[in-house]
Amino acid sequence: MGAHPTPSDFEARTNATYDALMWALSRPGLPRDLPSAGQSGIIETLIDRECAVYCEDPAMAEIAARTGAAMAPPEDADHLFLSQPPARLAGLRQGSDMYPEGGATLVIPTRFGSGRHLGLTGPGVGGQVLCRLPDIPHSFWADRARVMRYPMGFEIFLIDGAQVIGIPRTTVVEVL
């Protein structure tokens, strides 16, 4: 076989980041390793000028703005890079029954691995997966269940350093 193109650092990073995000969402509750810590890797993997982005952290907003994405308030954004779990979930974009893909994607930094167990069930979970997310208030999961009506909804990526957990809209989260 002849010469093939070699991946640039950017390509290798975004490819690995997407692989982690895809598997995180396919297997809810199971942490995956990102190539780098923090939200900036996810921004360069997913965001470009076709996106409307909301960033709480001004440093992230600058990185997102460099991709050409439009800055939008939380209720209009399709990707939200937050600093903590949002207090109000009802206003977030959830798509429509005809176009469920219009739902938002939330990226929230948090900590994994202590506090009460959460029981996750739904597609991607064989049986039940337990995970522990101490910094997410229990009312968040109750609100999430209350405001979403499948197939409308939003996706959540929780990141702790260079690890990511995905919670798609299909996952039922139970505080045990």
């Binding site: 975004t14 895809m22 396919s26 469920p100 893909e101 597609p123 996706e155 798609p168 809209r169 299909t170």
Partner: peptide, 15 residues
């Protein structure tokens, strides 16, 4: 690739 990534993530979320 970014567009396909975004759409595939939503496709996984709404099987």
């Amino acid at each position: 690739k970014r567009e396909i990534r975004r759409k595939t993530l939503k496709a996984i979320a709404v099987p």
